[in-house]
Design a protein around this nucleic acid. Structure first.
Lengths: 192, 192
DNA sequence: TAGTGATTTCAGAAATTTCTGAAATTACAG
DNA sequence: CTGTAATTTCAGAAATTTCTGAAATCACTA
């Protein structure tokens, strides 16, 4: 591997983290390399930069494409494929969230739903179903929240993030206003 | 493995998902088993239930303990260790978030900070640093949001989740009120 | 302190994942 | 077509991770 030192640190780190993130080292390294590269790279360049085989590059790029994390580019009069990452980090975040949800959450949700449809045949099963039902309810709540906020434009999403927990203060204030205006009692779970 | 069918499906699923979640099959299975079990289990019972070796159980439980995902219990006049999971799913969520952040996010944040401290020695490095800086800013914003909302009591957190994107509507309303009252211009990023 | 049962450690076996080089395929130009 | 460059596929090699059984350690009791 022959890269500028700063880039090399970054690439190696993404490689090492790969396993914690559920991708392999090479995939992590290629992503990191493309992310910081000033222009698109072709497979050969990637293989050289990371000192890995051409075929490994091919497979890893394919993997990255299934994650929608790389873009394919072309140069005029050059029939090689060139690769980059999307450059808006917010877009990358959205893609990552979507793909991880698809791989890590959705299958569990569907297994839970399936199990919860069945009739328990014993006390043990009845108890297990109750526990699974709690888990299911929580995941549903989280995914509903996610489906909701992912629609927001980036600017609003950023605003929401910087507000953080202060939102609840706002909510109380709003409830006070509403209850004053309409004679209602404050209700922290009020969704309207 | 000899478990009630519903429990078995759940346990096998957690095992299969293990690798996507960055834990191994056995660890996933043990967690699932403890999660649905009506009472704490000892290591021997786990090994029998999952048909795995006693030593594997020991190592996997240790792993789960480093994640703070299992609790150690004792019965009177019995010196074996018994294990359960915390039973509040919200608490489990918090633990999971905290541990994943610690393992998956913090190391990256610190690598990024370190690299960003250094002086770029070329155009390539300068460009790479700019990209890393964007990534760093985004992760910082996300972790700040997380550090903030994780303080909320569960009830408020649940409220926040069910509000979802509607929060931004609330925010606009509040800005209108504030600007009417104090003659200020609306500012969506206003944190006060 | 010796004995017993629970637990942990750890070297190597087994299983799984990752990676490579060679061959096959694809896409295009002459 | 034929030749060439790019890319993909894939069987097996290499590396890594997971798992086991045997031995060591620990905790307690008699």
């Amino acid at each position: 591997m022959n890269l500028p030192p700063l880039v090399q640190s970054f690439v190696l780190h993404f490689g090492e983290m790969g396993s914690r993130w559920g991708i392999n080292r090479t995939v992590g390294q290629i992503y990191a390399l493309l992310y910081v590269s000033p222009s698109p790279l072709c497979a050969e360049e990637i293989a050289d930069a990371l000192s890995i085989s051409r075929s490994n590059v091919s497979m890893s790029l394919r993997e990255l494409q299934t994650w929608n994390l790389v873009l394919l580019k072309h140069k005029p009069d050059d029939r090689r494929d060139f690769f980059t990452t999307p450059d808006d980090v917010w877009q990358i975040l959205r893609t990552l969230a979507e793909e991880r949800k698809k791989r890590e959450v959705d299958p569990t949700l569907s297994v839970l739903r399936e199990i919860l449809m069945q009739r328990p045949a014993s006390d043990a099963e009845r108890h297990a179903q109750e526990r699974m039902s709690e888990m299911h309810a929580l995941i549903e709540q989280l995914t509903h929240w996610y489906e909701d906020v992912k629609q927001l434009e980036t600017e609003r999403l950023a605003t929401l993030l910087s507000l953080g927990a202060k939102v609840t203060k706002l909510l109380e204030a709003k409830d006070r206003v509403v209850s004053l205006g309409r004679g209602r009692r404050p209700n922290p779970a009020n969704k309207s």
